[in-house]
Design a protein around this nucleic acid. Structure first.
Lengths: 221, 221
DNA sequence: GGACACATGTAACGGGTTACATGATTTC
DNA sequence: GAAATCATGTAACCCGTTACATGTGTCC
């Protein structure tokens, strides 16, 4: 019983699904916070059947047979038990940030690349979120009756996407600025940035290393 | 050559490290956006040596020998090449959100559990971030000279942590409120939430499904 | 001198992905 | 009727984790 199993079982708990539809729905629902390769899902469904947690029934649609899976009582019980289990922590892998971190060992395009990729991906997510949001508002979403819970997921996902987008944009600006400064000034800029973030969120220590009277930048004349 | 390899190689590019220190530093640096089991890192170091991307030299500290790894020219080249490669997308696994999504199939504590766990984890990250931030501001951070780039990472991580914390808190409130409403009202609440989020971020379609004159809640008398 | 954290691994296991395979169905 | 897309898998592989194993400083 691996986590993936429960994700599928959970999706099955809403209603019976034909394999393909189930897979598509899971992509739509989980892709951004619980991504799994589609091939794995088909395999997992077979196993659920073998274990007696779901039953498959062949239905004819058009000329092709398709397997429709239904959760069993046993399946519901297993799912319920898992849900009463301790959740594990969120877990992120952010390649772009790693590259930024190491960017001084690469060519000049590394940072740009990482930030652009981040922005594009976040925008893709935002598109999707927008589409889904509209569906719920117009009442045509496939899981309309689940709207109360789904609104939480929606909310998370939108803010999550915006985190990346905003970060990518502001970081681009920040690094562009920093690259035009003398080293010591760029260091001050960095400290300012850290200080600002800390202050913004009420973290203690934000006043550290503060230069009380920064010499005004001498402009000509 | 897997991503982990490059992460280590990258860390090695800053300076030579004794295995243990390297592992600790990587934990500190990458744990929240590129987590890897420590045992794997030791194994990976050996492989870097075999491949000629790093060289290990035994040094004596106290009475015990420790291997100190240094990146080679070849290693730097490999790292550089990788950095010029396309980054992959960010990739999140958020068990808590999955559980929230499926919470109606579990007992009553599921949602609470998921939200509490989320908040605790986010607070842990915030603690760490605060500590690191202070180190940079006071100038005692181990990679002080990297401050310009690290400030970006810091910024991301703080906002990332706050995303979870804020979300957990507001979701708790939202769901508590929703659970006290009649079903139709909770649906309106959900739609409002979706609408608000969409509007807040300038997404089109936020006006959909809007009930122009919601009947004022009738209060007694 | 017993306990506990430090420091470094290794062997086995397992979950998940990649890449491919195959028929059916629609499209032009 | 050729090409593309739908629908469903499967077999191989690989990356990473878990769970241990072992010696060594260090603290009371």
């Amino acid at each position: 019983m691996k986590p993936t199993t429960y994700a599928i079982l959970g999706q099955l708990a809403f209603r019976p699904w034909a394999a393909y539809e189930l897979v598509k729905e899971m992509r739509r629902n989980f892709h951004y916070f619980y991504p799994r390769a589609e091939s794995g899902l088909y395999a997992e469904l077979k196993k659920l059947d073998q274990l007696g947690l779901a039953r498959s029934e062949s239905q004819t649609k058009g000329k092709k047979d398709r397997l429709v899976y239904t959760i069993t009582e046993e399946g519901r019980k297993v799912l319920r038990d898992w849900l009463n289990t301790e959740p594990s922590s969120f877990h992120l892998e952010f390649d772009g940030l790693l590259r930024l971190f190491l960017s001084r060992f690469g060519g000049p395009g590394v940072v740009q690349n990482a930030l652009i990729k981040t922005r594009l991906d976040s925008e893709e997510l935002l598109e999707l979120a927008q589409k889904v949001g509209r569906e719920y508002l117009t009442g045509i979403a496939p899981a309309q009756s689940e709207i109360v819970l789904r609104a939480c997921v929606f909310d998370f996902l939108v803010h999550y996407a915006l985190l990346y987008k905003d970060w990518a944009i502001k970081t681009e600006t920040y690094l562009a600025r920093a690259s035009q400064l003398k080293q010591e000034d760029s260091i001050e800029l960095a400290k300012d940035s850290i200080r600002t973030t800390m202050k913004k969120f009420g973290m203690e220590g934000a006043q550290l290393g503060y230069n009380p009277t920064p010499p005004p930048p001498s402009r000509g004349l």
